[in-house]
Structures are given as C-alpha cells and as structure tokens.
Design a binder for these strands. Structure first.
Lengths: 289, 289
DNA sequence: TTGAAAGCGCTACCAC
DNA sequence: GTGGTAGCGCTTTCAA
C-alpha cells in the first residue's frame, strides 16, 4: 500500500552481518575511456539485477581516492568495485583497512592482497597474433597503450611470443602511450612510413584501432582491411558499427561482471576469504572477415 | 584521525530539512544512447563537485519505474534527476507523491507539474537550417529520430520553418524512428536514392548522423562533405573524432548540468517552489567547415 | 501470537 | 560551555 521502509534505519538496527545497505560503489577513474564506460554500464546493470544499488564514484585524481573511500564507508556500502584503469592498485588499501569488500578490474594486484578479475591479456595477444598469422600475413605491428599498467604490456608479450614462435622474428612496436582514439589517430599520422610496410596491426584497445583506421583511410589513403588488417582489443559497442566493423579481441564483459558479483557474494556470505585473482579468457571476434 | 560518521544515522536523527543524505539519484532509461550516456557522465561529475553522491538507476522498462522510485525513497535520496529519453514524463509522478525533488531532462512536462531542463530544440532546428542555407545549399533533408518524444519533432519544426521562410519550400523528411547509429546507417542504405538528390542533411542526433555518414561513404560512395553536408545534433565526444569531424548543433551539456544543480538547490532551500521549465540555447559547432 | 522495550549511531536540546 | 538524554525508524529480543 505504498509504504517504503527506510533502508538507513534498517542497516542501523540490524546485526551488521545479516542485513545490509545493498549499496555497492563503482569506482571509475576515467570515463572518457570507452571501455571503462562500457564496463561501468554492464557492471551497474548486473548489480541492479542482483538487487544492489550502484553508486558511482568518479575519482579523477589519485589523491582524492582515500577521501572517496572514506565517504563510501560513511554510506555503509556493502562493497566496492574498482574499475582501476589509471589508478594504482595500492590506492585501494584503504578499503581493506575499513574491511570494505573490494574487487578490482583492469589492474591485478601483484601482492595478492586484493581480489581482482582480469581478462587474460597475454592470451589476448596470442589470439590476435594467431588470427593475423592465419591470414598468411607476416609483416606485423603492435600499437601499445598506456605504459604504467600491465594490460598493454601483457598483450604485447603474448603477441610477440606467438609471432616469434611461428615466424622467428619480432613484430614492430609503436607507442601511443594512451588508449584513446586521438592517440591512435596521431600515432598513425606520425608513424605512417612504418605502418605502410605492415600487413597486420594489433592495437592495445579498440579506440586506438579506430583512430589508426581513420587516419589510414582518411589521411594516408591506406585501404583497410585490403592493404592493412587491423585488430583491436576490448570489443566496445562501437567496434561493431558498420563504419568500422573492427575485428577485435573481446573482453568477456558479461562474464567479468558475473564474476565480480560472485566474489562479492562469497565475501558477504563467508566473511573471511582469501583474496583471489581470476583470469578470464578473451575471445576473437572476427568482423569484415 | 580516520573516523567516518555514519551518514545513515545522521539523516535519521536530524530534522529532515536541515541535514540530508546528499544522495542524488540519476535515472537513465537507455544507456546505449551515446548522448544519454554522455549526459550521465557530465551530470554525475557536477553532482560530485557539489558534494552529492550520484546513485545510478537504470530503468529499462516503464513498468519498473514506480518500484525504482520507491526504492530510492527508501534510500532517502535528496533528489532525482531523470534523463528521460525514452520514458514518458507521467511515470515520474510517483516522485511528486513522495515529495522527492525531481528534475527531468530530455522531455518536457506539458502540464507544468514537473521541473525540467531542456535544450531549445526548435532553435536547434533553426540553427541547423541557418548553417546549411548559409553555405548556399538548397536541397535539404532531415532525418527524424524517435517519434514518441518531442525532441525530434521540435527540431524538425525549427528546421522546416526557417527553410520555408528562406526558400519557400519544405525539406525532405526521412524517418529513422530511433536515435541510434544503426538506424542511421540502415536508413541511408534504404533511402539512398532520395539522399543522392540532397546537398544538405540535418540528423536528429549525432549517432544518426554518423550512421548516415558511414553508409554514404562506405556503401554508396557519396563523398561527405564534398557532395553532401551532414549536420548532427547533440555534440557527443565522438563527433569530434577526426574520422567524423561532424558539424553539429551542440546541446549545452555543462549548462544543463549546472541548471539541474541550481534547481535542486532552490528546491532544497525553499521547500515549496513552483516547478519551472528552463530552455537552454544550443550552439552551432562547425567542424570540417 | 502479539506487544513492549532496547539499542543501532548520531544530533538536538536542555539542563546544569 | 559541557554533559546527559531523548528520539530519529527500524529490527530483534524477551515477556506476557
């Protein structure tokens, strides 16, 4: 009959372990990154489907992180999911101190203190190489993203390993130092001579790949995919746009979100639980063959 | 010294009007719409800058709306901002019944019961027409978005009015029935013969415009902008990508967010306040001249 | 089965 | 000033 209990009062009264606020914070550092923004969307959807209310916390500067986490604990959130694209994992230790359940995405914790869900980036690199090699291409390159995280480096590693195994030589590496569209576009302008000699190019993100593609087509007149095959990484919704039809290594976003939910539920049910790192397999998504 | 008060307990104790939860809900219906997703991002940023915690509520189906609003009131949110792209304004009356401060975006309330911030869509249409006419073009068309909201229709109205005033004739209207990229792409494939005869095309959203553009360039071989000028509407971040360089009618997103903040603050300070409708002026953003 | 009371964390108020 | 107390809305527990 239209009555709505006060959730605040409820959490207040109930023995902390049994009833909860059902608030889960999603920490995002860089919304302009299409993949992070996509991940946020999927994640918040999954949370809602499990009757959790997502709270968004946008942390632009690393130094705001501690304060943001404090505020979250003030809101009695049941857990924190960190889409830690450009934030160092160490910054999240505050959560542990406050014993806030925490799962990070995007950057693994080397020390095994923090639970984390990752895409297997090494395998992603191998998949990309596998695909390009299977097309009979041999002059290959890689466009690296940010250098301060492990994602781009691991993708490169997997890519190079398979290429060295099969061809006995290394791929050319170009450094964009960012995962963004513009970085890809500008890199392709700058490094056009190197790119002209390539047959296949694996980019550390879809946005990079789209930037490179646009630059090749509209600035340098390189025909994609006829003269140059480009493979992206992430599989953001835009990669499917008919203008791009980007072949890409898809991160299993749905699976990532489900795993996050699973881990949170485990922590909630089980109080004490060793932090775990889960690596999920990426999948090759071939478009425009 | 690391102590964090429990916000819940605080709201509980304090005379409702003075201290608040500082939680503001953002209701979004369609995250796949790039403009809504962009608006959400800007909005949540503005809220955070005013020390408000954004809560995301994703309402896919109209029938879930009432329940979602009930839950929000259970969380004692201080206000609700509805990005009401595909939801009818009437659905939000529940907020009024619970006397939850409410501001809607994207769809105005005809009856003046609900506060709302809008871009002046009629003016947007006029601006687009003005621009195309100033380039000396006379064979003009419009790609309509969803028909159930007023946005697309008002843009069409402004567009047609100015064209009729200046040329004494009407622009061709094509119906995509959606604001999405794919709808634009497919429409341009379907209606290619009509489009071939045009010199300028105003699309009801940037995503539509990009879809049309890609279809023209990659399927039909129409050169954009040499043979056909395309003008979008919204100014999403992607419109600036070098591959598109889309001339567009920019919604004043920053101003919209600030106005929302202003209205919420007014309501909070002033208890009773007549609902107001604010129309903000769009701006022409010329790219690739 | 139903009802009354205590207590969750905090703030407001009113004595002192 | 400064402490002590009541009460916010709810759940849990214990008594009738």
């Amino acid at each position: 009959m239209g009555y709505q209990p006060n959730f605040f009062a409820r959490t207040l009264s109930t023995p902390a372990q049994k009833q909860r606020s059902n608030l889960v914070a999603i920490l995002v550092s860089d919304f302009s990154n299409p993949f992070q923004s996509y991940l946020f969307e999927v994640l918040s959807n999954t949370l809602q489907q499990h009757a959790k209310q997502p709270m968004l916390v946008n942390v632009k500067h690393e130094q705001d992180l501690d304060q943001a986490i404090m505020r979250l604990s003030g809101y009695q959130v049941d857990g924190v999911v960190a889409v830690a694209g450009s934030l160092a994992v160490e910054g999240f230790e505050q959560c542990l101190r406050l014993s806030l359940p925490l799962v990070t995405l995007g950057r693994a914790d080397e020390r095994g203190i923090i639970s984390s869900v990752q895409t297997d980036n090494y395998q992603a690199g191998r998949l990309a190489a596998e695909h390009l090699l299977s097309l009979g291409l041999s002059k290959l390159g890689f466009v690296a993203g940010r250098n301060d995280g492990s994602a781009s480096n691991e993708r490169l590693l997997g890519f190079q390993h398979l290429i060295t195994e099969r061809l006995g030589e290394q791929a050319l590496v170009l450094y964009a130092n960012s995962y963004g569209y513009s970085a890809g576009f500008e890199l392709a302008v700058r490094a056009i001579e190197a790119i002209r000699n390539l047959e296949g190019l694996f980019c550390a993100s879809d946005a990079l790949a789209m930037g490179v593609m646009d630059s090749c087509r509209n600035v340098s007149g390189i025909r994609v995919p006829e003269q140059l095959r480009i493979v992206g990484c992430d599989d953001v919704p835009q990669a499917a746009w008919q203008g791009y039809q980007l072949t890409t290594i898809a991160q299993p976003v749905g699976e990532i979100a489900d795993t996050v939910m699973l881990k949170l539920n485990q922590i909630w049910q089980n109080q004490e639980l060793a932090p775990t790192l889960t690596r999920l397999s990426p999948k090759l998504k071939v478009r425009r063959t």
